[in-house]
Structures are given as structure tokens and as C-alpha cells.
Design a protein around this nucleic acid. Structure first.
Length: 824
RNA sequence: GCCGAAGUGGUGGAACUGGUAGACGCGCUGCGUUCAGGGCGCAGUGGGUGCAAGCCCGUGCGGGUUCGAGUCCCGCCUUCGGCACCA
């Protein structure tokens, strides 16, 4: 029978007590090894991966828990579908974040991190995640970073890791180099300090070699569309041509002088069709040809401009959109027109992109137009839009479609055809080559910091740059008390002589170690390969296990890593594939980005004091209610608004589930209507969970509960028991407890998903909407199998409808099971 | 500026390939249980109008296609996210 919840929980032993239930099952899972996966023998393997957390001192953030719970539900659901599910977790504990915190509190990260990890572990277990902790990963453990160093060596061997002296982004506050990805609008993404440019020797990975593949594979990956778009933007492919403009001999050069005769300035353009309108060239201030093309008369002015540009930091350069520049005095030949055109220097041309030089087409490029207007350079038209002709003046740059004008033999061609024809024409004359350019830069992995894996390289006066042999890994990060970085641009490790000096692996002579450590993103670019082999110390990843478990079936994480982490992981996987270590080249078959949790309509932040503490909510409402509530807030891929009161609704649902299960009759025929709703619910929860639509899956279960508990009806076991399985992924503890109550001796997660019977889910009677001229005029309840004629008869019998239907209808639209629309 | 996503009650959000807009939850209102509070149960809850049956309006704004539009098309507005002097 349907019992009401007793007044006092004290004298009622049957009341739902989440604290007791959850503790009981967390212990039992441990004892029984419920979460232990048989990696070698398990059938139908399913790898459900979530982005591993950085173990902060503050403990688990509700955002972490939102991400993990979503993955856990998916993993548990797949297990109920008969898969062997591997759902590992670890810690991304290296990096500036940890190191800065350690410096702030004055404690060594080697002591701090294990404590944070212990706290995380407590909270993660508390939340009831199905994690097999035997395969944990900690990026700061030598048994892990030994293989991170191994990964570096694989790249080094293939010529994909190289050192170059380069202008890099230097954060004066964190005193370290930052990757371009870590510079947001000219500021350090971590501390907000204005980033400076510095010249340092840095290790880079040649990710640009893989730009094309990284971009092309996105077409077939089953990933969130937003994530793919972010990656495409980041890689930034442009197709165009590389065009050579020969430099004219300097005026005033001695007769017969060959100075500059064999020099050409190469530019990249996506609009070779506009080359007849290229009236000048612009070099970036750092361009190596600036000095050679500059005339004596202009030398002083050019040098002053370059010096000033060099001092400007990135912010000033990107924010200050006012054009500046200076004429070099030199000229180059436009290979299309044969005319000499002036060469300018301006900082609106970036050395990092393309060739660091452009052909300026002021008529058809907004920036060039602005520059030419400012310096009173000619602005000819070479493309005519609709209604324009060759002499229509240009009030602004025209960048649209049109036909070529003032372009010699190419006049009249439309832009697309002209791009092709002119590129081919220039190529024949050896003035141009078709080229694809990428915005993507090589990945700078050097960090002049302490808290990271040392880069496994040794410098020997005799042998040069020598990789540490693989069998000598790991290069252990020494436990030194003084790990504070300084402003020299040299890692703190360099101050530690007994570590710094070593012997050359090649000749045995005294040698020096590389003192940079590698970027945290390298740690996380391969961790998913390590999990199944985390207990092995002889290989980075076991070939058989890797073949069985990878690539990852489902990866869930935040879109803040859409570009960096996911791109680097794909790159490293491709490299290891090319090196013969992997038989796949994309690590994550399916990726879904979860949304963000806000609270009461505002972003959570420490300063606002509106941060959700998971422990508090789990104490008050139970982990099951908390998990289910997080998933009920909104669409998982969009996130949701956390309102404290809302959790009571989810808890009420679990209370009602509990009392229904405890008070049901063990036998008896299920009600036909309830049974029908049950099967509809089985289908909906299954479909919705599979597509991560957790909020609607929960709503469906609540709806079923409402049907189950309508009025004073008696609930039968056969009506509740399947619901316990449906709810198990969301509220695993209470599901286990009720499952046991029903007499089962094994875990509910070793049960199987209830069988959906379409026949039982079908309604005998349906409510048809009756419209007249598309307006709802009534509803009729009819057999699901009615014909249009029968439905019409019913509709006409309805007074509300009949009123609007006087004569014969002009047209009738009948959608079985849905509606009848009578057009009069 | 370019690319992408989204605008639905008091509120978080439902609505499959165009087919009864507002599921489910929170909040609110009333009733019951209770000394009371909480809890629990029952009923109601988009706006307007009407004694009522009902009628009119309603998914950011303006047009359109259609028997029928939250959903499709065209033109705007707003918010959020990515890229950004990228040639």
C-alpha cells in the first residue's frame, strides 16, 4: 500500500537515511570490488573518460563534480547495457597553478600535492563515482612522468622537438614563458599581467606539420560542434599563394652593382586575383629584409620606427589599431604589372604569420585602404562589383564579389576564376606558388619553472645536444627547498649544481642538464593512454591493453579545453601513431563538452561568496540527491543554474521511490496503465541517457513516479523494481539498497537494463487535437487505430467543433494519433 | 569585423524529422492532516475577459511560406562563447 511518510523519523526505522545508505554501499563496493574492471578479460569494453582534475587546495569544485557525475552516469548506463566499463580518474598535479599556490603558502609542492589528492579522493568517493582506483594516474609521480619524458624523446627522435631562439611571451609576474594559447588579449591567462616579449632559447613541438591532418580529421570526429568550431578557428587555414616580388636595385647604387638583384620579397595572399592592384609592399618591423632594402636616406627613420615597434608589447600592438609605418626608400617589382612599387615597414603586418610581408591592395583590403589613405598612396580599383565599372571611385575597400578590371588580359573574370587563373599564370612565370597557410603556431613546451617534468636532454661540449637514453629515465625532479623562479629566464633547477652537472650519456664527459621543465599540457596530452597500464612500470602503455581499450569511446570535459588540451592530445596521438606505437590516430572517438554551472543566475566566484560547497549539500541531502539534482538543473551540454531550493524536489522523488519500494506488495498484477507508462519510461530514459539528455530522463522518471503514486493505489513490486534499475546510474546508492531489499545478492550494476516492450508501451486510446482552420477547437478521445472518417464523425459530434464546421469541409488533414485539422 | 550557440510563464527548463506550447521541478495559492511549525497528501497556477461553457492574445522584433510555425525562409535586435591588424 502507499504509506505516507511518518511524522517522526526517530521512531520510524524505514525512513530513507542517505548518510547511512551511502556509507554502507561505498564500503560494500570497496569490499566486493564492484568497481574493479577486468581489463584483459572483460567483454564489450567501453572506455568512459572524463578530464582529470587539478587537485587544488580548495577541494573539489562543484563544476568538477558536475563533469564527473555526468560521465559516471554515462559509464554506469553503459555497464547496465552489458559493457565492461572502464572509468578511471587521476590528477593533473604539475604546473604553474600548483607551484604558485605552494609559493604563496610557503610549502613545498611535493608535500602539498599528496594532501590535496587525499582530500580529492575523499570527496570523489563520497560522490559515489564508479572509479577503479587501481589504475589511478598522478602526473607528478616519477612512474608517470618517466613516460612523459619518453613521449618527448619520441618527438625528438622524429625531429618534431627542436630548440630555437625565439621571441616568446613572458609573464613578468609568474616569471615564465607562456604559450600563445595562454595569452588572452595580451595578458597572462593565469594572473592577468601584461605579457612581454623576450628572446629565449625554447623547446618547441612541430605541431604545425600536423595542422592539415588536425583540421581534416575534424570532419569525421563525433564531437560537440562547438568544440570542432573552436579547433577550426584555432588552426585557421587560409588557402592562397606565395608570391615573389623582386627587389629593385637601389637608386644610387654603383653602375653594374648587383646589390639586391637576386633578392625577392615573398608575400602570402589569399587574393592573388587582386595582384594588379598591389601598389606597395609592407614588411613587418622584424623582417630580415628591412635593412637590406632600406636606402641610406631613410635609414635613420626606419631604424627609429623598428626600435619603437620592438619595445611595444603585444597589448599595445594589438589594441592600438591606428596605422603607423615608414617608407624604406626601396622598391620591388610587381610581377604582374612589371611596375616598381614602394616597400614600407609597418607594424600592422605580423612577423609570426605568413611570410611577415604582404602585398598591399588598398582598393580591396580594409587595412591596406586605411594605410594608403593615411599615407596618400594610390588606391586603384581592380574588382568591380555590381553596377561598378573600371573607373568607379572607391570610397572604402571593396571586398565583395565581382569581375576583374584594370587587370590586363584577366579583365572580366569573376573573382573565383581569377584566383585560379592568375595563380597559375604567376606560377608559370615562377613568380608564385599555391600555398596553404595556418594560423596555428608551433607548440612551445619549455617552462623556466620548477614544478614539472625535467626535459630529458643533456648538453655536452663534445657531443652537443644529447637525449637521455630511454633506459635512464626518469630524469627525476630533485626535491629542492628553493624552487622560486627568478627574473633571469633560467629555471630554478640551474641553481642546483649537483643536479645540473651530469655526465654525457654519449661520451661520459662532464655535461649539463636541460633545466627547463615541460608544459603541463604535455602531461595531459597522453594520460588516457596510461590509465589501462597504470600498474605497469616496464612500458608506457601495454600494446594488447591499448588495442583493446583505445581509442576512448566517450570523453567528457569542459569546453575551456576545446583548443589546448584536446588539440595537443590529438597531435601527440598522431605522432605516436606515425611512430608505430598506436594503430589509431585520433584518441577520442566521441567527445561531448558539458556546460557550466552558475548559481542564482551568476557565475560562481570566491569573491562573490556564492561558491557551492559539494560537501555541505551532500551532508544535508545525500550524494544521490546531489548528483541527481546536478543533472536535473538543465541540459548537460549547456549547464544550469544552481538554486538551492531546487534540490528538495529531487530529494522528494527519491523519498517517494524509497517508500514505494519498501511498501509495495511483493506480488499482484501491475495495472495496465501503469505498465504502459513504465515501458514508455524505459524507452525514454534509455534514449535520453544515451544522448546525455539527463534532465529529461529524470523528468520522465518523476512522471512515472507520479503515475505510480496516483491516489491511494497499491504499488506492486513489478512496477517499482524496473524503476530502481533506471534510476541506478543517477542515484547508485539508494538503487543498490532497494535492489538488495528486493532480495538480490549481486550489485544492481550487474543486472541488466529492463527490456522495453513496444507492444506494452502502445496506447489503445489517444487524444486527438481537433483544429478548424488550424485553430484548436477541441479534443476527442478515440481508439488509436481510428480512420480519418471515424475521427471526422467524432469531431462533428463535438459541440465546440461543430459550431465552426457548418457545411462540407474544403479540406481535411489527418495525422493519426496527433490531430485532425478541418479547413472550411 | 568574422565564425558559432541561444532568446519560451514568477523561476530552472520541456516540446522527436512543422502537428494540442509550457512536460518535470522550484516558487506561489487554497484545502486536508497537525496544539503549532515542518513534513506529507489533494487541488490549482501563461496573460486578458466572462457567472459559466467559452472567446481573444501569447515562444526577442518585423515580414513570409504552410491547412498548421517555438520549430522552416528573409530582414533586424539582444545575450553568451571562439577568433581577431592572420593578409
Amino acid at each position: 500500500m502507499t504509506a505516507s511518510i511518518p511524522d517522526s523519523p526517530i521512531d520510524e526505522p524505514l525512513a530513507y537515511d542517505p548518510a547511512a545508505v551511502e556509507l554502507k554501499w561505498q564500503r560494500r563496493w570497496q569490499e566486493r570490488g564492484t568497481h574493479a574492471v577486468d581489463l584483459r578479460g572483460g567483454e564489450r569494453p567501453f572506455y568512459a573518460l572524463m578530464m582529470f582534475p587539478y587537485p587544488s587546495a580548495e577541494g573539489l569544485h562543484v563544476g568538477n563534480l558536475f563533469a564527473f557525475t555526468g560521465n559516471d552516469i554515462y559509464g554506469r548506463f553503459q555497464r547496465l547495457q552489458g559493457h565492461t566499463v572502464f572509468e578511471p580518474l587521476g590528477y593533473d598535479a604539475f604546473g604553474i597553478h600548483s607551484e604558485n599556490y605552494a609559493l604563496k603558502v610557503g610549502e613545498h609542492p611535493m608535500r602539498l600535492i599528496p594532501r590535496n589528492i587525499a582530500n580529492f579522493r575523499r570527496q570523489l568517493d563520497r560522490a559515489g563515482l564508479m572509479i577503479d582506483w587501481r589504475y589511478q594516474v598522478d602526473t607528478t609521480d616519477p612512474s608517470y612522468y618517466r613516460w612523459t619524458q619518453w613521449v618527448f624523446l619520441q618527438l625528438f627522435k622524429r625531429g618534431l622537438a627542436f630548440k630555437k631562439r625565439a621571441a616568446v611571451n613572458w609573464c613578468p609576474n609568474d616569471m615564465t614563458v607562456l604559450a600563445n594559447e595562454q595569452v588572452i588579449a595580451g595578458q597572462c591567462e593565469r594572473c592577468g599581467a601584461v605579457v612581454e616579449q623576450r628572446l629565449l632559447e625554447q623547446w618547441f613541438f612541430r605541431i604545425t606539420d600536423y595542422a592539415g591532418r588536425l583540421l581534416d580529421n575534424l570532419d569525421w570526429l563525433d564531437w560537440s560542434e562547438t568544440t570542432k568550431t573552436a579547433q577550426r578557428n584555432w588552426i585557421g587555414r587560409s588557402t592562397g599563394a606565395r608570391v615573389r616580388f623582386p627587389v629593385e636595385p637601389k637608386a644610387g647604387a654603383a653602375p653594374g652593382s648587383t646589390a639586391n638583384n637576386d633578392v625577392a620579397i615573398e608575400v602570402f595572399t589569399t587574393r592573388p586575383d587582386t595582384i594588379f592592384g598591389a601598389t606597395y609592399l609592407v614588411l613587418a618591423p622584424e623582417h630580415p629584409l628591412v635593412a637590406p632594402v632600406t636606402t641610406d636616406a631613410q635609414r635613420g627613420e626606419v631604424a627609429a620606427y623598428r626600435e619603437q615597434a620592438g619595445k611595444q608589447d603585444l597589448v599595445a600592438r594589438k589594441v592600438n589599431k591606428e596605422k603607423t609605418g615608414v617608407f624604406t626608400g626601396g622598391y620591388a617589382t610587381n610581377p604582374a604589372t612589371g611596375a616598381p612599387i614602394p616597400i614600407w615597414v609597418a607594424d600592422y603586418v605580423l612577423m609570426e604569420y605568413g611570410t611577415g610581408a604582404i602585398m598591399a591592395v588598398p582598393g580591396h583590403d580594409e587595412r591596406d585602404f586605411e594605410f594608403a589613405t593615411l599615407f596618400e598612396l594610390p588606391i586603384p580599383r581592380v574588382v568591380a562589383g555590381e553596377g561598378d565599372d573600371a573607373s568607379t571611385p572607391l570610397a572604402e575597400a571593396y571586398t565583395g564579389d565581382g569581375r576583374l578590371v584594370n587587370s590586363g588580359e584577366f579583365d572580366g573574370l569573376d573573382v573565383d576564376a581569377a584566383i585560379e587563373r592568375i595563380t597559375a599564370w604567376l606560377a608559370e612565370r615562377e613568380a608564385a606558388d599555391a600555398q596553404i597557410n595556418y594560423r596555428l603556431h608551433d607548440w612551445c613546451i619549455s617552462r623556466q619553472r620548477y614544478w614539472g617534468p625535467p626535459i630529458p636532454i643533456v648538453y655536452c661540449d663534445a657531443c652537443g645536444t644529447v637525449p637521455v637514453p630511454e633506459d635512464q629515465l626518469p630524469v627525476v625532479l630533485p626535491d629542492i627547498p628553493d624552487f622560486r623562479p627568478d627574473d633571469t629566464g633560467i629555471s630554478p633547477l640551474a641553481r642546483h649544481e649537483e643536479w645540473y652537472f651530469t655526465s654525457c650519456p654519449s661520451c661520459g664527459a662532464k655535461a649539463r642538464r636541460e633545466t627547463d621543465v615541460s608544459d603541463t599540457f604535455l602531461d595531459s596530452a597522453w594520460y588516457f593512454l596510461r590509465y589501462p597500464s597504470a600498474d605497469r612500470d616496464d612500458v608506457p602503455f601495454d600494446p594488447a591493453l591499448t588495442k583493446k581499450w583505445l581509442p576512448v569511446d566517450s570523453y567528457i570535459g569542459g569546453n575551456e579545453h576545446a583548443v589546448l588540451h584536446l588539440l595537443y592530445s590529438r597531435f601527440i596521438t598522431m605522432v605516436l601513431h606515425d611512430a608505430g606505437h598506436l594503430d589509431f590516430e585520433e584518441p577520442f572517438t566521441r567527445f561531448r563538452a558539458h556546460g557550466l554551472i552558475i548559481r542564482d543566475g551568476a557565475k560562481m566566484s570566491k569573491s562573490k561568496g556564492n561558491v557551492v560547497n559539494p560537501d555541505d549539500f551532500m551532508d544535508q541531502w545525500g550524494a544521490d540527491a546531489f548528483r541527481t539534482f546536478l543533472m536535473f538543473l538543465g541540459p548537460y551540454e549547456q549547464g544550469g543554474d544552481f538554486r538551492d531550493q531546487g534540490i528538495s524536489g529531487v530529494r522528494r522523488f527519491l523519498d517517494r521511490l524509497w517508500s514505494s519500494a519498501r511498501d509495495c506488495t511483493p506480488s499482484g498484477e501491475p495495472d495496465a496503465a501503469v505498465l504502459r507508462k513504465l515501458h514508455q519510461t524505459i524507452r525514454k530514459v534509455g534514449e535520453d541517457t544515451a544522448r546525455l539528455s539527463y534532465n529529461t530522463a529524470i523528468a520522465a522518471m518523476m512522471e512515472y513516479m507520479n503515475v505510480l503514486r496516483t491516489g491511494e493505489r497499491t504499488v506492486h513490486r513489478a512496477e517499482v523494481e524496473p524503476l530502481v534499475v533506471l534510476v541506478a546510474s543517477f542515484a547508485p546508492h539508494v538503487a543498490e539498497e532497494l535492489w538488495e531489499l528486493f532480495g538480490h545478492t549481486t550489485s544492481v550494476f550487474d543486472a541488466s537494463w529492463p527490456v522495453f516492450d513496444p507492444a506494452l508501451a502502445t496506447e489503445d486510446f489517444v487524444t486527438l487535437a481537433v483544429q478548424v482552420n488550424g485553430k484548436l477547437r477541441g479534443t476527442i478521445k478515440v481508439a488509436a487505430t481510428v480512420t480519418q472518417e471515424e475521427a471526422m464523425a467524432h469531431a462533428r459530434a463535438d459541440a465546440g467543433v461543430a459550431k465552426f464546421v457548418t457545411g462540407a469541409p474544403r479540406k481535411v488533414i489527418f495525422v493519426p494519433g496527433r490531430l485532425l485539422n478541418i479547413v472550411v
